[in-house]
């Protein structure tokens, strides 16, 4: 049946426009990154160096510190989000009384939609001093032989602060997926566990095991969200070129580097391209992680029909 429907004719241009927009965006990032690839090859991603200069032949950039920072802080964020979102999901489904349940879900959604700059200002002026005083300094004083705690916490702006702030921010995203998956497991499985004499803890652990793919998906999506976050992170991470495992060390993420350096990048010949290369890396990582998370969830939903 080949009929030219008015509706299709009307809506198709919009669809085409969206496609073109995305492809064009990808194209811009690739083409703007090429100059720095030609200038430095893969060093742009592998080296930790940021040598800006009026003399173009002296410029050399490396995003290693930013890439490390992005991954490190997002991993910390996910470490925090994982137990919190699971605990939250179990609470909402199993323990929250009916009236509170809806309220608690709405609160989580508010946290997910809250303007990130609000997290940023709270993070910079409240969370960082608090962490420095009550977590970093004590840990540094007592346990500085542990590699994670070995970097001196000077200002408090650090991977840890960024990681914790991100963890708080992305927990609602993981929670949304996990609580829905947890709630979709039929009661008969829990009843079967009880009938076998399991305690509440043991039967809950069983259910959590049943929804493991959803949890993985939620965590992947949280990771993708964390790695793309810009303003909140850039206000608490210290914006310093460092590569360190020390949690209290300041650092950079790709997004905070772009936010921080892009304004004056046009002065230098190669910096803009270097930053675009960073953006390209973020583009790819973010997209791959998000797609993986979504496909995982989709496949799980399709195969597992309770």
């Amino acid at each position: 049946m080949k009929r030219l429907e008015t509706l299709k004719v009307l809506t198709s241009p919009a669809v085409i426009f969206v496609f073109i927009l995305f492809v064009y965006m990808l194209f811009v990032y690739i083409s703007m990154s090429i100059p720095v690839f030609q200038w430095e090859g893969l060093d742009i991603y592998l080296k930790n160096i940021w040598h800006a200069s009026e003399n173009p032949s002296e410029e050399y950039y490396g995003l290693a510190a930013a890439i490390w920072g992005s991954v490190y802080t997002s991993v910390i964020a996910v470490f925090i989000a994982l137990p919190l979102s699971i605990a939250y999901s179990i609470f909402v489904n199993d323990y929250a009384p009916a009236r509170i349940k809806n309220l608690v879900i709405i609160l989580s959604d508010v946290m997910a939609g809250l303007p990130t700059i609000i997290y940023g200002i709270w993070g910079a002026f409240v969370l960082v001093p608090f962490l420095r005083e009550w977590v970093m300094l004590p840990l540094y004083r007592e346990l500085s032989y542990v590699p994670f705690f070995s970097y001196p916490p000077v200002s408090g702006y650090s991977y840890l602060s960024a990681g914790i702030l991100l963890g708080i921010m992305v927990t609602p995203f993981a929670s949304a997926i996990i609580r829905e998956a947890y709630g979709s497991v039929p009661q008969i499985y829990r009843e079967a566990a009880y009938a076998l004499g399991f305690t509440k803890y043991e039967s809950t652990r069983l259910i959590v095991g049943l929804i493991r793919p959803a949890i993985i998906s939620g965590i992947l999506l949280a990771f993708g969200r964390a790695i793309g976050e810009t303003v909140a992170v850039s206000l608490v991470i210290g914006n310093t070129f460092n590569i360190s495992m020390g949690l209290f060390s300041p650092g950079y993420t790709i997004s905070s580097l772009i936010a921080n350096q892009f304004g004056n990048a046009f002065i230098y010949k190669h910096m803009t391209s270097a930053l675009f290369a960073g953006g390209l890396a973020l583009f790819v990582i973010g997209t791959v992680v998000n797609i993986t998370g979504l496909l995982y969830l989709k496949r799980w939903k399709k195969n597992v029909k309770f």
Binding site: G224, G228, L282
Partner: peptide, 8 residues
């Protein structure tokens, strides 16, 4: 696009 880094 729903989860795309907005800085980009």
């Amino acid at each position: 696009m729903l989860e795309f880094p907005t800085i980009l």
